[in-house]
């Protein structure tokens, strides 16, 4: 029955989160019904399971039928992840620009108005850029995924099914989020605040920075 679990996992993995459990339960029932009709009360053979799965067809095709044949820039397989990453990226970019404003204001409170205008300009240009690049990357990912699907034209076999990943080995969502946040902060800092990376010169009080990077 492990083959059945792998099959169902391969199908629901390509469907939106909200429908996964229900469809998995329904497919379990269906496959058991089909097996029972095939072998009756006799003991199950692995070949019976394979035949039933072959009758149902490749998991990708079945998932496509559940989704309906629609065209997407970013399909449901990627959409949940896309929204998650987009939120993180926008929050981090926005927050970093805000923090940049705070630091500049603390270092040089007299020109707070300049810093404020600078922050608004950074937000207006930075956020759409972040949004655009994130969307672009996912759209490209979707496109490459579709191309790969078209390449795999040969007949599907149950033995192609990948194993269900071990719970412990799956990369935790939290870990990925922390990683993305840290990288995004570093990038925003490099992009918008490079003038602060350098030798801070103090003569009695703070008097300027000799930057490492020239922007």
């Amino acid at each position: 029955m492990e083959m059945v679990d792998r099959y169902i996992y391969a199908v629901i993995q390509k469907l939106p989160h909200t429908q996964r459990k229900d469809i998995a339960n329904e497919l379990h029932g269906l496959i058991e019904d089909m097996l029972e009709e095939r072998v009756g009360r006799e003991s199950l053979k692995a070949s019976d399971v394979e035949e039933v799965l072959l009758e149902l067809g490749s998991p990708r095709k079945l998932a496509d039928k559940y989704r309906g044949a629609k065209k997407y820039l970013i399909g449901p397989e990627l959409f949940d992840t896309y929204i998650l990453i987009l939120k993180i990226v926008l929050i981090v970019v926005g927050a970093s620009i805000g923090v940049g404003f705070l630091i500049q204001t603390i270092l040089n409170p007299v020109s707070i108005l300049d810093h404020f205008i600078e922050m608004i300009v950074s937000l207006v240009t930075g956020l759409p850029i972040a949004f655009g690049w994130t969307t672009y990357s996912f759209a490209m990912g979707e496109l490459v995924g579709i191309k790969q699907r078209d390449l795999q034209k040969q007949e599907w076999k149950p033995s192609d099914l990948p194993p269900i990943p071990d719970e412990k080995r799956q990369i935790k969502r939290g870990e990925s989020i922390v990683g993305i946040v840290i990288y995004a902060i570093i990038i925003v800092f490099l992009a918008f605040s490079s003038e602060y990376f350098g030798i801070w010169v103090f003569h009695d009080e703070f008097s300027g920075i000799v930057p490492f990077l020239k922007s």
């Binding site: 429908q19 269906l30 009758e55 149902l56 067809g57 095709k61 039928k65 559940y66 309906g68």
Partner: peptide, 12 residues
Amino acid sequence: VEPGTLYPLLRR
């Protein structure tokens, strides 16, 4: 009807 066609249809 193939089950693979019917089940998604019912859901739709």
